[in-house]
Design a binder for these strands. Structure first.
Lengths: 345, 345
DNA sequence: GTGAAAGCGCTAACAT
DNA sequence: ATGTTAGCGCTTTCAC
């Protein structure tokens, strides 16, 4: 059973390919094709279940109905959830997703953008690594819709969706300060990305405003989790004065909890804890961990809205939009000073 | 800066398109094109950074270098991890991933297979919902490489990679029986899929072999997690004789832990727990939860190997291969009977 | 109102 | 050994 082509349809109906094409693309009226012919074509097409080849169409039009989604790592629960939401919204609009993980590797990302470009993807959703602003700018300059998220590239002129990293970290640090902690550490992955530097500087300004000491541990990301746990564990052992920790990312927080468990340190009695991002682990840990929760649904919603806006050549703004969303504290038990513990129950 | 086409290359070099094409496709020798010409072409191609359009090539050859990956839900950590591993292996072989979540929806999956077919994906990796065996068989009959995983379709003639669900559940149940528990429940998502029925029957045979009572709760999957937690919570409240639970899936296990926490039931003193799949939550819970861990890396590795085998038309076996992998117990504290608790420390 | 034909960029059978 | 050419299936300009 060979797949039908538009020529088969045209032959069968004794009309030309172009007529069929016009009908299929909703240009029948514009071309003043008779109602009668239109319905005859539509009926037959439905009857034999013909659908135009997106590949041939893509070759001709340069459009693909595919959106390229590049995340740091699809196995990260944050990105996996975003991906799921984006996919289902995009699917409803007739777009498919071609996706890949960048591993925050600049070269890999460049190659990936090229791959997507060759495939004529219609739009890009990217959580970019550092150093790809030139490629991004080339894309937007060529009129391609691009939405950045989770972090931004200072010199890239693309739409972006981020959270208020700096004030979130500032407020979280304040929360710990207000609980009376004075030796507060910030533990995170080393990274030049804007979301990380924002979190770091939010932490720092809260600390410095209070005249306290800055304690920062930057972990190099390592696929071998045990080695990262060891790093945190060592740091904590060597800095016994630390009485509270703000973790800058969910993976850092999880490593931290594993390190604290290993060291037999009690939360919050020995060390108070707040972590960026929310996760089942934080909800179920004993005690439950106070978290800075990102509005995942809204992030995904904004991303896809921005992209669709650019995809539909209506009133597309030349200027790029930067959207900053607010986080939400999930206040639980892990940040409460033991002096207040009784009261808090 | 217009993108170059093969014609531009040919003109520049004063040769024909086919010559360039042959060189590019490694058929120079076969076509006895002079070494000199070959290197002249290669040099120029590299110089101007020309890469053939995969779309045009796809239209002509019917190949796309794209693998379609359909998982139940990309936001599920199990599938997200598998996806990550598959993607990186596929990427190295020059394949891109087009992916989507089926939500276990039969109709959606059928439509998705059609979408993939239209796009000429070269191979399919699917964790199938029930009821798509006809579509799968049509694919394999047409010579398309298809690898099923996580569950299989009894009447589908495709390669598959699964774990030994039945014996894993059997052994886990035995483990609880050997600890002296006598009212063991099996809590899982309702599903007609083979992996779930396998787990259920493994549980049942262990229970019945011992003459104990069968206690099964099948939760209807619901995106609203709270309602699922409530279901588990109600069940546990109404069946206070239950002293141990085997959870049939990671999400069920997490819901279960939340319900147990809510009910203030101690693990393992009030209720012992074992869950399918491993997860950070299980490692970090107090006490750590005994889990039946799937060999994620090996699963992904086998999937991609099977697919590549079929993709490279070497000695492709007509007969389909069913691979069954073993799980591994992560023995922790949650399944230990309190009578043995002292000893176990 | 409808159709013929060019062409998107590539591959491969067929000539030479 | 290398070139010519006919498509792959579709869209779209232009002619009737």
């Amino acid at each position: 059973m060979k797949k039908l082509s538009i020529a088969d349809i045209a032959n069968h109906l004794n009309v030309s390919k172009s007529t069929v094409s016009f009908v299929l693309n909703g240009r029948a009226e514009e071309k003043r094709i008779s109602k009668e012919l239109v319905s005859r074509v539509e009926k037959f097409v439905k009857e034999v279940g013909y659908t135009p080849s997106p590949i041939a169409r893509g070759l001709r039009t340069g459009k693909s109905n595919i959106i390229g989604l590049m995340v740091e790592s699809i196995s990260d629960p944050f990105f996996a959830n975003i991906a799921k939401l984006i996919e289902s919204r995009a699917y409803k609009k007739g777009y498919r997703i071609l996706y890949c993980s960048t591993d925050n590797d600049t070269e890999k990302t460049r190659a990936l953008i090229e791959v997507f470009r060759e495939r004529n993807v219609d739009g890009y959703i990217i959580s970019p690594p550092v150093g790809v602003e030139d490629e991004i700018n080339a894309l937007t300059k060529a009129g391609m819709p691009v939405v950045l998220f989770d972090r931004s590239l200072p010199n890239a002129g693309a739409d972006s969706v981020e959270i208020n990293n700096e004030s979130s970290a500032f407020n979280a640090t304040r929360l710990l300060i207000d609980q009376g902690f004075t030796n507060i550490a910030f533990i995170t992955f080393s990274s030049l990305l804007t979301q990380m530097s924002g979190r770091l500087s939010g932490y720092k300004s809260a600390i410095e405003q209070e005249g306290l000491g800055v304690n920062v541990l930057e972990i190099d990301y390592n696929p071998d989790e045990d080695s990262m746990i060891q790093t945190v564990s060592n740091y904590l052992s060597e800095n016994k004065h630390i009485d509270a920790v703000l973790f800058g990312a969910v993976q850092a927080g999880i490593c931290g909890l594993k390190a604290l468990t290993e060291l037999n340190l009690k939360i919050p009695e020995d060390v108070a804890v707040i972590s960026f991002d929310d996760h089942d682990v934080f909800k179920l840990f004993a005690p439950p961990i106070t978290a800075i929760s990102q509005p995942i649904e809204e992030i995904a919603g904004r991303i896809i809205s921005l992209l669709l806006e650019r995809l539909n050549p209506g009133q597309s703004h030349a200027v790029s939009q930067k959207i900053i969303l607010n986080t939400e504290f999930k206040l639980r038990r892990s940040h409460v000073n033991k002096r207040f513990l009784r009261k808090a129950e």
